[in-house]
C-alpha cells in the first residue's frame, strides 16, 4: 500500500479505504486490501461460497461484483468477493 494510504489497523478494527473505482474488475477485494496491510484473515475459497472469511462490518458500504453464494447477514461482509465502495470499518476477531 502506498504512503498516501489511510488504511490502518487499530487492534480489533480495520479501515479499508474506498476503492478508486469499485466497479472495475481490477479493484482490489476487501480481502486483498487486508492482506496487503498484513492483517491475517482466514479464508478458504476466495470465491464467496464457503463463508470462511465472513466478517462483521461496522460502517461503510461494499459492493459485490457477483452475488456471494455463502449466507451473509445484513451486518456482515465476505471480504473475499466484495470491494469497498466507501471507506469501510471491519471488526477483526
Amino acid at each position: 500500500m502506498s504512503e498516501s494510504s489511510t488504511a490502518l489497523k487499530i487492534d480489533t478494527l480495520f479501515l479499508a479505504e474506498a476503492a478508486a473505482d469499485s466497479t472495475s474488475k481490477y479493484a482490489p477485494t476487501l480481502l486483498q486490501q487486508m492482506e496487503a496491510e498484513g492483517v491475517e484473515v482466514a479464508y478458504q475459497c476466495r470465491e464467496g461460497y464457503c463463508g470462511r472469511c465472513r466478517c462483521k462490518k461496522l460502517s461503510g458500504e461494499v459492493t459485490y461484483q457477483s452475488p456471494p453464494i455463502a449466507w451473509v447477514n445484513p451486518d456482515e461482509v465476505l471480504p473475499c468477493c466484495c470491494v469497498a465502495k466507501t471507506d469501510v470499518v471491519i471488526e477483526l476477531t
Binding site: Q44, C45, Y49, C50, G51, R52, I69, A70, W71
Partner: peptide
Amino acid sequence: ARDEALHLTGTQHMLN
C-alpha cells in the same frame, strides 16, 4: 472438503 463447504452453505441458506 471443497464440496462439503458448498453443501454446508446450502443448509445454512435453508436454515436461515
